[in-house]
Design a protein around this nucleic acid. Structure first.
Length: 854
RNA sequence: GGACGAUUAGCUCAGCGGUAGAGCACUCGCCUUACAAGCGAGGGGUCACUGGUUCGAACCCAGUAUCGUCCA
């Protein structure tokens, strides 16, 4: 391949679209279940079809893409399954809002027409997400793209529902559920967000001796008892008696219940079984009637004067009426207490007695916990496993019915005489039966994702090959929402095989001050904006570089710019290598110390990168490749290579080719685009995507070369420091005498002189400064008086450091306890430091003494 | 109310018993023929606080404070 003319700046837009289309058309993303390779599979956590990908998705995808690309390069049959979920409430809300703008409601259209509208919207919205994924570089197998509402997945939903129903794990019951009065549907516990809100605490006198406190005064209309703790002596004599409920005239009993906290308020609580989960339980224990006083809109349905009032209008109205009767004995406003809100629309959730479908999670949750306990699935980082156990070990039954139109219709049909029939995928309901109008919670279908996407319930080749999946990558925020549910259903449907070998959790993306991103705060980053401005690689690298396991990731524009600079650095370094004929081939036998050093460092880097990848330490992988590339390859090896090339060492081009070939392959999973472009140029290969992942070769380990180059770096850095302190311009050549003979650097004189712009001492050589470093004496003729003040300052600073070191170290050596108890190698190290600091002090003192007065 | 996590350089974070680190920001000098999206040099930290364990603590233990998250 001829050396291409590469521009001096990397322009991501030029290569990204081109590379992605080529990868796709070449079929590199496709997995073959029939191959003999070891499988490696990931299912993408399906984004909501209604939304767009935010920077958090970009992090999630970058991690998965890095894992998938590395696995593919390591010769695995790598499969990354893409898709989206139908997001029941969210999607229905969006479409209803659009209809609302035209003055229509879903009821105007009717169920069938409305659902058709939603499908239209899904095509529009979902397309945007797919475009974003391509821009990010996601190497997903598009031929296997799935949607939770598509035919196969709907069949999976119906199949598992039927099985669970037949096993008695799905039931219908009247329970207190979380009701959203705006979305008009039941919600599960985890779809309710609690926040500390200002409210009021009103104490109401029910009788001379009974005062109750409540934050929801309007619910007193539905009270059917007052409860006290059985051990509370203040009320013992009242248990079993009745009080008259104010405003209503109803007589309600006073019951004793252990769950009443005698320390709260007066120790007596009102009991409203139809409108409070705790009260519902008390009601059950004492066979109290449940009295519903509110409809599904949150409007009061009982008691003349309040009937027709919204719950928030009824509250002050009820309090006013009670006050008029002299019943209000205390009011606290504001009273901060925890209030539940619909996670979708933020409306205050109303606990409501209602007939719903539930999953009996008992046996499923136990199995989900056990699978992690016995190691079938590993949660990473392990600290987060506790949160998982806390959840699955104390899980409440899961309310799965939703009063929506968009979603999987519950496959249960009712007969004229109240018969209930659950219908499987290939069955027909009996004639004259009508189907349950409700749909299933979206998470019900998402919970099947790791196997429904692979073809379950059919016994497909994909399923047998790629299940259980290798790893699930997702944020710790949906450990309960989603992970626990996939574990339950996966273990149930797949006979004890959990859906993932590893669950790798990452954190949330935050701004540069660690603040949560929010639209109202205005600190939201749009991944497409960054991709446009900095490139997809820089966007990915910024996120990965901050991704420590389970921890949040802070990002900012400055850091994205830094990542772009890194990509540009790689671009220019490779450009340099190509300009000097870098080529891949058998390495020459006469390698220089610099060559052997960089090859040795490469082995370290490969091993460290592998180790970090295995532990999902993406920040570490990024950081170590960054430093190998920039500090070692660019700052040192390329500079040394320039000298070798000038000396006519043609073998250098093969070392350059070898190093860049490996480096670009190592970087490819993180920054796929720039590495593809450059790797093809260096190697002439088809695609780095299908190149082999580098394998560390211990034969290239070379401690001797490493210590030689380390010494060179020390010497060069020290002389540069001298030059800088003396105000010598970088390009200014000065004469110097180097005492290299007999040192490890004897062979490096040419390189050292070149790096430091040091000329051979000429006839009139007269050293104006002398010092030693790494065992090498350096005498420099600065061609003029040196800056004595600067030099004295430099030496005194070094001397202070050396003296401090000597003091610390001799204190240790003088400590009998330390000498007796510290391990041998530690003592030896301290002794060496003592020797070194002693020599440094003597040398520096001599230099200071030799300095002309100034 | 319960649980967990955090507290290290101006900012964001690594390090988790044996000489305090990175990126960005900052200061100084440089258009040195790959790169100014760059090169070289430099400044900057009683590792939240108080005790304890240890020859030795940023690191282990106990407590305190502050912040954050989740659950109720």
């Amino acid at each position: 391949m001829t050396t291409p003319e590469l521009p001096t700046q990397y322009t991501p837009a030029d290569v990204e679209t081109r590379s992605y289309s080529r990868w796709e058309s070449e079929g590199y993303f496709r997995a073959d279940p029939g191959s003999s390779r070891e499988p490696y599979s990931i299912v993408l956590p399906p984004p909501n079809v209604t939304g767009v990908l935010h920077i958090g998705h970009a992090l999630d995808h970058s991690i998965q893409d890095a894992l998938t690309r590395r696995a593919r390069m390591r010769g695995k049959e790598a499969l990354w399954v893409p898709g989206m979920d139908h997001a029941g409430i969210a999607t229905q809300n969006v479409v209803e809002r659009k209809l609302g703008a035209e003055g229509l409601s879903r009821h105007d259209l009717g169920r069938q027409a409305f659902v058709e509208k939603v499908w239209q919207w899904k095509e529009e919205s979902g397309g945007a997400i797919l475009g974003q994924m391509r821009r990010l570089g996601d190497s997903v197998d598009w031929s296997r793209e799935r949607f939770t509402m598509d035919e196969g997945l709907s069949r999976a939903v119906q199949t598992i529902f039927k099985r669970l129903f037949d096993d008695g794990l799905i039931y219908r019951a009247e329970r207190i559920i979380n009701w959203c009065v705006r979305c008009h549907t039941a919600l599960s516990d985890i779809e309710v967000e609690h926040s500390e809100d200002d409210g009021e605490l009103v104490s109401i006198r029910y009788s001379d001796e009974v005062v109750v406190a409540t934050t929801r005064a309007e619910t007193m209309l539905g009270d059917t008892a007052v409860a006290v703790n059985p051990a509370d002596e203040r009320y013992t004599h009242l248990v079993g008696t009745y009080v008259e409920l104010p405003l209503t005239g109803r007589r309600i009993p006073i019951v004793a219940d252990e769950h009443v906290d005698p320390a709260f308020g007066t120790g007596a609580v009102k009991v409203t079984p139809a409108h409070d989960p705790n009260d519902f339980e008390i009601g059950r224990r004492h066979s109290l009637p449940s009295l519903t006083v509110m409809d599904e809109h949150g409007v009061i349905t009982a008691h003349g004067p309040f009937q027709g009032l919204d719950r928030f209008e009824a509250r002050p109205a009820v309090v006013a009426a009670l006050r008029a009767e002299g019943r209000i004995v205390a009011e606290k406003r504001p009273y901060v207490h925890s209030v539940g809100h619909c996670s979708r629309c933020k409306t205050v959730v109303e606990p409501r007695l209602s007939l719903q479908w539930f999953v009996n999670v008992g046996p499923l949750a136990k199995e989900a916990g056990d699978a992690v306990r016995d190691g079938r699935t590993r949660i990473h980082p392990p600290e987060l496993a506790k949160r998982y156990f806390d959840w699955v070990d104390d899980m409440h039954d899961w309310c799965i019915s939703r009063q929506l139109w968009w979603g999987h219709r519950i496959p249960v049909w009712y007969g004229p005489a109240g018969e209930v029939v659950c219908v499987g995928p290939d069955e027909q309901p009996p004639a004259g039966y009508t189907q349950d109008p409700d749909v299933l919670d979206t998470w019900f279908s998402s919970a099947l994702w790791p196997f429904s996407t692979l073809g379950w319930p059919e016994k497909t080749a994909d399923l047998s090959r790629f299940y259980p999946t290798s790893v699930l990558v997702t944020g710790y925020d949906i450990l309960f929402f989603w992970v626990a549910r996939m574990m339950m259903f996966g273990l149930y449907a797949m006979e004890g095989q959990p859906p993932f070998q590893v669950v790798a959790l990452h954190g949330m993306v935050r701004d540069q001050y660690g603040k949560k991103m929010s639209k109202s705060f205005g600190n939201v980053v749009d991944p497409l904006d960054w991709i446009d401005r900095f490139g997809a690689d820089a966007t990915r690298f910024t996120l990965l570089r901050g991704a420590n396991p389970g921890a949040d990731v802070a990002v900012s524009e400055e850091w994205a710019a830094g990542s772009r600079n890194f990509c540009n650095k790689i671009w220019n370094a490779t450009r340099f290598a190509l300009m000097n004929g870098a080529a891949v081939g058998e390495l020459p036998s006469d390698l220089t110390a610099a060559d052997r050093w960089i090859l040795s460092r490469l082995q370290h880097t490969i091993e460290a990168a592998d180790a970090a990848f295995e532990e999902f330490e993406f920040a570490k992988v990024s950081d170590l490749l960054y430093h190998f590339a920039w500090d070692e390859v660019c700052d040192w090896y390329l500079e040394l290579a320039k000298i070798q090339i000038a000396e006519g060492r043609t073998g250098t081009r093969l070392v350059l080719g070898h190093v860049f070939d490996a480096l670009l392959r190592l970087l490819h999973p993180l920054v796929p685009f720039v590495t593809e472009e450059l790797w093809q140029a260096v190697t002439g290969g088809t695609s780095v995507m299908v190149a082999q992942w580098p394998v560390a070769d211990p034969r290239y380990r070379d401690p001797a070369a490493e210590s030689e180059i380390t010494a060179l770096q020390e010497l060069v850095t020290e002389v540069r420091r001298f030059r800088s302190d003396q105000g010598l311009k970088p390009g200014q050549r000065v004469a110097a005498r180097l005492g290299l003979s007999g040192t490890a650097l004897a062979a490096q004189e040419a390189a050292i002189r070149s790096l430091l712009r040091l000329e051979e001492p000429g006839d009139g050589f007269s050293a104006t400064a002398r010092f030693a470093v790494a065992g090498v004496s350096v005498e420099i003729d600065t061609a003029g008086a040196i800056d004595v003040v600067a030099e004295r300052k430099r030496l005194e600073k070094d001397l202070a450091v050396a003296r401090k070191e000597a003091a610390q170290v001799s204190a240790k050596l003088g400590n009998e306890q330390f000498m007796a108890k510290a391990p041998e190698d530690v003592v030896a190290k301290v002794r060496a430091r003592a020797t070194q600091s002693g020599e440094d002090i003597a040398r520096l003192e001599a230099q200071l003494a030799a300095l002309p007065a100034g």
